[in-house]
Design a protein around this nucleic acid. Structure first.
Lengths: 326, 326
DNA sequence: TCCCGAAGTGAGAGCGTTTCCAAGCAGGTA
DNA sequence: TACCTGCTTGGAAACGCTCTCACTTCGGGA
């Protein structure tokens, strides 16, 4: 056409297919450059059935997504990690029901090649809807669904919580309490369970020694106040997030409890600008959102490339960083 | 076809076009529901030349985007505001040069109907490239470009800074200094200029009485220390961001200067979880990222709908909230 | 009774690619 | 010289939709 060459050949050149002579390729490329030619994305994806885009679905209130360091890291890592695979991220917020419907329509319309799904809440219907779509899905964090057949990447919430609690024991803290996340939240439940297994608390003890927060600082403050009230002689606190731990520190200090002299505090997340810069700096279990998203992207990529990746729940290790709060 | 009806009719029903009898529409819709039919997005956008997606281009380091409250608000508002217009956001990070190239390719390929462009840095070539693309663009914050012909929405950085500085004067502070943002940043320059116009500082005075930060808390600390050193008798500080103001507060307190007794501090941004919860709570100029993005989306929508919106720089007002730091 | 206009519907072209298949062409072998 | 092989190239179908245009049907006015 433009370079005295057929559409078919142009297509082969653009897509770097093998059966093209170098000279022809050069001619086509220079002609393309001269004309400012760019292949039309819609036409291409119509025939290849690939869009080059991946949806990141976040089923959380927006405030959570942008204030919580975990989700901020997720969004950011997804964006860059997908870009490295030449894929574009489509960010879908699906907290409210009408949004959920939009999300389903969007995914069903074939706008994206795959889905990275974050939906930690118990009664969210979206994960179940999404798994039925004819699109590969990788879950970030275990959903409240039967897990067989699903591709899941999760942090080791249980193991991390055990690590934290055992650390408190090692420090000689025998009367520890825990500030949990919202208990319709899978990670929150797992972290509580880790604490429970190490302390050996029975149901009654759990009711007494744990208080439910909401992952925010205020929630941590409320829960800590409640626990101080119920368990005046507590000597160790495992908070299921950095924000809540900071809240707990405040309440403890205001109550005249020295940290770590009177009470040791361990948190979960280990976000650089929170845990390390708290006063005192927080001993924290580190979950690695960057590694998690990278693994999710790698898994999705394998699925899209047609590798027969076995469905599995891949658990990323959690590590403990000791600082001055214990 | 499926419902004993032609493709054309189905298309008309799906797109809610007028010339269809109610009965036929009902038949088609029920057939569609039964078959789980969803129109193919690629095919549709091939012929309509609309993708239903809008790019949000952020030419900033990633750390800035997710730690800085302004950008977090931008991303979040863009996402929801576009969703309300039935549009999907494609988030493009373009800080590093190789990313910039990817972004240009992406926009040129026709993946999106329009662009919301945030690029505050002086030597960023992207805005100039993007404005030449055959895609409507709305800039968030004035770019370092000749502004004629561009659609721009900006906060009133100049006016806000004047407001802040005049407030310091009203409080009887006659020896004020300013902590600026990075001066390759348009908003930082405008805020400095606002301060300069009210104080009437000449070039030498500016050199003496201002110190360049980077919008972060650490940057604010460094700048404040420097200023205390250079201007020991300062009595008022205008910091060009909340984060920097918090840093300044720390340094002032450590230097034994009581705020607001000895020194008054005003900041810019007024992010709820920073300015109001600083100790003392910060008097701050409020810029409204939500309103800004909403305005940008509205402008872009007008452009896409073919309204002949005159190119202009639309400035959103800034307001001052007094708290205990002045 | 005939004609006309409006409303509803269907046929088919066209959007810009990729990809299958066949054709052209060179070089090597019988 | 004739034939086969392997590489390069072009023609044309297909992807799934929208949209124009033409056709049918029906009601009302002349």
């Amino acid at each position: 056409m433009r370079a005295g060459v057929s559409r078919a050949t142009v297509s082969r050149v653009i897509n770097k297919q093998p059966r093209v002579s170098p000279e022809t390729a050069a001619v086509v490329l220079s002609a393309a450059a001269e004309l400012g030619y760019t292949p039309n994305a819609a036409a291409r994806s119509l025939v290849t059935r690939r869009t080059g885009a991946v949806a990141v679905v976040l089923s959380e209130p927006e405030s959570m997504i942008f204030d919580d360091p975990f989700f901020a890291a997720v969004v950011r890592t997804a964006c860059t990690e997908l870009a490295r695979n030449q894929q574009q991220m489509a960010l879908l917020l699906a907290h409210r029901p009408e949004q959920a419907e939009r999300v389903e329509r969007f995914l069903r319309a074939g706008h994206v090649d795959g889905v990275l799904m974050f939906s930690p809440h118990r009664d969210d219907p979206l994960p179940d809807q999404v798994r039925r779509l004819p699109v590969p899905v990788v879950f970030g964090g275990r959903p409240w669904l039967p897990e067989d057949g699903l591709h899941i990447v999760d942090a080791d919430n249980l193991g991390g919580a055990e690590l934290a609690t055992r650390h408190l024991l090692d420090r000689g803290r025998s009367n520890t309490v825990t500030i949990t996340g919202p208990l319709d939240h899978r990670a929150a439940v797992d972290r509580l369970e880790g604490w429970r297994q190490v302390t050996g608390a029975d149901q009654d003890a759990v009711r007494l020694l744990s208080a439910e927060g909401d992952f925010t600082r205020r929630g941590g403050e409320r829960a800590m106040a409640e626990l101080l009230d119920r368990v005046p002689d507590l000597d160790g606190v495992f908070a299921a997030s950095d924000h809540m731990a900071v809240g707990a520190l405040h309440v403890l200090q205001r109550a005249g409890r020295a940290v770590p002299h009177d009470v040791s505090v361990v948190s979960f997340d280990d976000h650089p600008s929170i845990a390390a810069s708290a006063r005192p700096a927080l001993t924290a279990v580190r979950q690695d959102p960057v590694g998690m998203v990278a693994e999710m992207v790698a898994n999705l990529r394998a699925l899209l490339d047609g590798e027969d990746l076995a469905p599995a729940c891949r658990i990323l290790p959690a590590t403990l960083t000791e600082r001055s709060s214990t």
